[in-house]
């Protein structure tokens, strides 16, 4: 950048210094998270020597992908100070509808149906939160009930057509290329790149932070906050839909509780990744590492035969501990 400015003013230099410092601070959060991730993997290797291999990494990434994509939508929503409790129901709906329509409609149209439903639910959420100013928690909770209920009914009605996950979806969700590269990275990597780039370098990304930090200030600066929120929830719905289809591919089956166990991990991944539950700070990089940490944690707990209850308590303690720590940082 300095090449275009032969004589940068002192204050301009200061800006850049400040930006350097800030970038370092942000990377440090991610670095400490990465250290935690590596430590967990090392622990895993100590407990069960030889377990960590290329194959293990490959399957961990495959399992982390749906959570990571779900966490992308959750990140976008939480950056605005909201929360989307409908992501699990939407993911399930997208995966199940896609699988049950595949035989009758053809694979591509079935995927389109699934994503369409996901976006539609997101749109309703967005209108509720952005236009009618319903608390995000209540709005998305209510929509998750509606979606899950409809799905149950749909299952009864559509019982004739068996749910069959299309082959290419399974290939993407659970296959690998060249022996170890997980295919679902085809979905996850572009999404991650787009979200990270968008949050840093696009006008819309800026507005997500602005609305989350201070909606009043955003409004006074001429931002129509509702437009930002409606698009935000649609994006969250779409990403949840993609995650649901990926998940259906991963498990090769589609049931009506496909994604249910992913709701709280999707929030936990974002919170661990350093995105503030109050909005305005954070990013998707942290959420990715958060999703990986959670996935590794699950395999760790499985290996040491930790009972499910223990796992749950740990989840709760982590969310609360991390949220309290970040709150302290914000209030300092």
């Amino acid at each position: 950048m300095s090449a275009t400015k032969p004589a940068p003013s002192p204050s301009a230099t200061m800006v850049r210094c400040a930006q350097d410092w800030r970038r370092r601070a942000r990377e440090q959060t991610i670095i400490s998270l990465l250290i935690l991730l590596v430590a967990l993997v090392a622990l895993l290797d100590v407990i069960r020597p030889g377990m960590v291999s290329l194959n293990w990494i490959s399957s961990t990434l495959l399992y982390a992908a749906p959570l990571g994509i779900l966490a992308a939508g959750q990140t976008l929503v939480m950056l605005t100070g909201g929360i989307d409790l409908s992501v699990a129901a939407v993911a399930t709906a997208a995966g199940y509808v896609m699988a049950s329509q595949a035989t009758a409609q053809g694979d591509a149209r079935a995927v389109f149906f699934g994503l369409g439903i996901a976006a539609a639910v997101g749109l309703v959420n967005g209108i509720g939160v952005g236009v009618l100013r319903v608390q995000p928690l209540i709005m998305t909770l209510g929509m998750s009930l509606v979606v899950a209920g409809f799905l149950t009914v749909y299952q009864v009605l559509a019982v004739a057509s068996a749910a069959a996950v299309p082959g290419f979806v399974t290939a993407v969700g659970s296959g690998t290329s060249l022996g170890f590269i997980p295919n679902s990275l085809v979905l996850w990597v572009p999404i991650a790149a787009l979200v990270i780039w968008g949050l840093r370098r696009s006008g819309y990304g800026r507005l997500l932070y602005a609305v989350g930090d201070n909606p009043t200030a955003a409004r006074l600066a001429g931002v129509r906050v509702w437009e930002v929120l409606v698009v935000d929830y649609v994006l969250s719905g779409l990403l949840a839909g993609i995650a649901g289809i990926d998940l259906a591919g991963l498990t090769s089956t589609a049931t009506i509780d496909l994604g249910n166990s992913f709701l709280l991990p999707s929030i936990a991944a974002v919170v661990i990744g350093g995105t503030s539950i109050f909005g305005g700070r954070g990013g998707y990089g942290g959420s990715i590492v958060g999703a990986l940490i959670l996935t590794v944690l699950v395999s760790l707990l499985t290996i040491i035969d930790a009972p499910e209850p223990f796992r749950q308590v740990l989840y709760g303690a982590i969310i609360l501990g991390v949220a309290a720590a970040y709150t302290r940082v914000v209030n300092e």
Partner: peptide
């Protein structure tokens, strides 16, 4: 009412 207090001067 005007500032995004957690964001940078530039933003």
């Amino acid at each position: 009412e005007a500032l995004l207090v957690q964001r940078s001067v530039r933003e």
